[in-house]
Design a protein around this nucleic acid. Structure first.
Length: 114
DNA sequence: TCAATGACCTGCC
DNA sequence: GGGCAGGCCATTG
């Protein structure tokens, strides 16, 4: 369980932690930032292991802005509650204004003057 | 070691 | 423009 010291997972955790408050990102965005847009599934898999980490997995959703992984949280609406608590409008597991709350790692890290 | 699965994405019909 | 199928990389049984 230790392919590399700083493998894909760690990178995913890093980006997930870099997600600002009230902002969300997508698996594809992280994967793309890591240079593995085709390995978007791995990013989600990393989140699965991020349960024990301090990774805000609730800020990470799919490309459609749908809380696909909310099923993996404690409660059924915990993920939604967390996002709403941060100011993100979530209705029926669907993030409203996803385009506005969307946080692109590559773009944000590239231009931090947001 | 092999095979199947998975919080997805992209491309094609 | 919408829906369906395949593929990608890594982990677990």
């Amino acid at each position: 369980m230790k392919p590399e010291p700083l493998g894909f997972f760690e990178k995913v955790y890093e980006v997930a932690r870099l997600v600002p408050y009230g902002r969300v990102t997508s698996y594809g965005a992280i994967a793309k930032y890591l240079g593995a847009s085709r390995s978007a599934r791995i990013v989600g898999y990393a989140m699965n292991s991020s349960h024990n980490k301090d990774v805000p997995a609730h800020r990470v959703v799919n490309r459609n802005g749908l809380l696909t992984g909310k099923h993996h949280f404690e409660g059924t609406n915990l993920m939604q509650q967390l996002l709403e608590n941060e100011g993100v409008k979530v209705i029926d597991n669907q993030i409203q204004n996803f385009k506005e709350v969307f946080w692109d790692p590559s773009k944000a890290l590239l231009d931090e003057t947001s």
